[in-house]
Amino acid sequence: MTIELFREDGYLKHCTATVVSADSCGVCVDQTVFYPLGGGQPGDTGVLIRETGQQLEILDCCKDRDSGAHLHIVKEGALMPELGERVTLTLNWQRRHRLMRMHSCMHMLCVAVPAPVTGGSISDGSGRLDFDLPHPPGKEDLEQRLNEIIQENHPMTLSWITDQEMQQQPELIRTMSVLPPMGGGKVRLVKFGAADLQPCGGTHVANSAEIGAVRVQSIKNKGKQNRRITIEFAE
Rank of each mutant, 00 (worst) to 15 (best):
V27C: 07
M1N: 10
A78Y: 04
Q217K: 10
V47H: 13
I3P: 02
G201K: 06
D44E: 06
H204I: 03
G43P: 02
T118I: 05
M1T: 13
V74H: 04
M100L: 12
D196C: 01
Q168A: 15
H70I: 08
E57A: 13
V216P: 00
A195M: 07
I173K: 07
D64N: 13
L197C: 11
M182I: 06
R128T: 06
M80A: 09
L5T: 04
P170Q: 07
E165H: 10
T90W: 03
R50N: 11
L146Y: 09
L133D: 00
S159P: 03
G201Y: 09
V29D: 06
Q55S: 10
V19R: 02
H14L: 10
H103N: 11
E82I: 14
S126A: 14
L71W: 05
M166H: 04
Q225P: 00
G68A: 08
G212P: 03
G120W: 02
V74A: 12
A115Q: 11
D141P: 00
L83N: 10
S159F: 08
C25F: 10
D60V: 02
P181G: 01
G202Y: 10
H107V: 01
H103T: 09
G127E: 03
P170L: 08
L142V: 04
N221C: 11
L109E: 01
Q31Y: 08
D141M: 09
C25R: 14
L56W: 07
Q151S: 14
P42C: 09
C110V: 09
P36D: 11
H72N: 08
